[in-house]
């Protein structure tokens, strides 16, 4: 007996935070690619990826714009990294009304990573192409189709690296908090 599963080519950008050098080429090129006409202007504030960085605490985390949320969420994330608390939604992907991040600076319209969908299909997303230090790596894989796939492009931060960097305990706490919120 066999089960029928819907297979789908999934796209994913793997983020290796340890390789990020904070250059923001990803922000720049994303905004240029989405300009009309293409590349006619650029402005990191319009980018669908932003690099959250605090050099003095050695924190460099590229974050992709995720879903638009109509209202501010109830439980905020609280990350503790190197002893400093980040409770200002710093690493959240949502375009949410409580902050300017992932909104067009002029119109205020929400921004969302679309994996550069109108790029020729054989090409990698622009932010990946311009991240030649490989902090962003494009992956295509065949996986089961889920509701989530249809809704949102899959982007994840390599868990192993996060654990190696910040310790299992902290990551677990963070994940637990995120799950509660979920």
């Amino acid at each position: 007996m066999s089960m029928v599963v819907n297979k789908k080519l999934k796209k994913r950008i793997r983020i290796d935070v340890d390789k990020c050098n904070g250059c923001r080429a990803c922000e720049m090129i994303c905004s240029a690619f989405h300009a009309t006409p293409k590349y006619s202007s650029n402005n990191p504030e319009r980018s669908r990826i932003r690099v959250m960085f605090e050099p003095l605490r050695n924190i460099y985390v590229p974050v992709y714009a995720g879903e638009y949320t109509a209202s501010e969420c109830m439980g905020k994330n609280e990350y503790v990294i190197d002893g400093k608390k980040y409770d200002d939604c710093g690493f959240c992907r949502a375009a949410c009304p409580s902050r300017t991040l992932f909104h067009e600076p002029d119109s205020g319209l929400p921004l969302k990573c679309d994996m550069c969908e109108d790029n020729p299909p054989d090409e990698e997303p622009l932010c990946v192409q311009w991240c030649i230090t490989d902090a962003l790596v494009y992956e295509e894989y065949e996986g089961e189709e889920t509701e989530e796939d249809v809704k949102i492009a899959d982007v994840d931060i390599s868990m192993e690296e996060m654990v190696a960097k910040y310790g299992l305990q902290k990551v677990l706490e963070t994940v637990a908090r995120m799950a509660q919120k979920g």
Binding site: D18, N21, C23, M28, P55, R57, N58, T133
Partner: peptide, 27 residues
């Protein structure tokens, strides 16, 4: 040396975050 870092829109990583034990971090 905690990390090699770049300037805006450049992949070359000519700088570094430096953290010497007992002193505050600098670049």
């Amino acid at each position: 040396r905690k990390r090699l870092i770049s300037c805006y829109n450049c992949p070359m990583k000519c700088g570094a975050v430096i953290s010497v034990p007992g002193l505050s971090t600098y670049m």
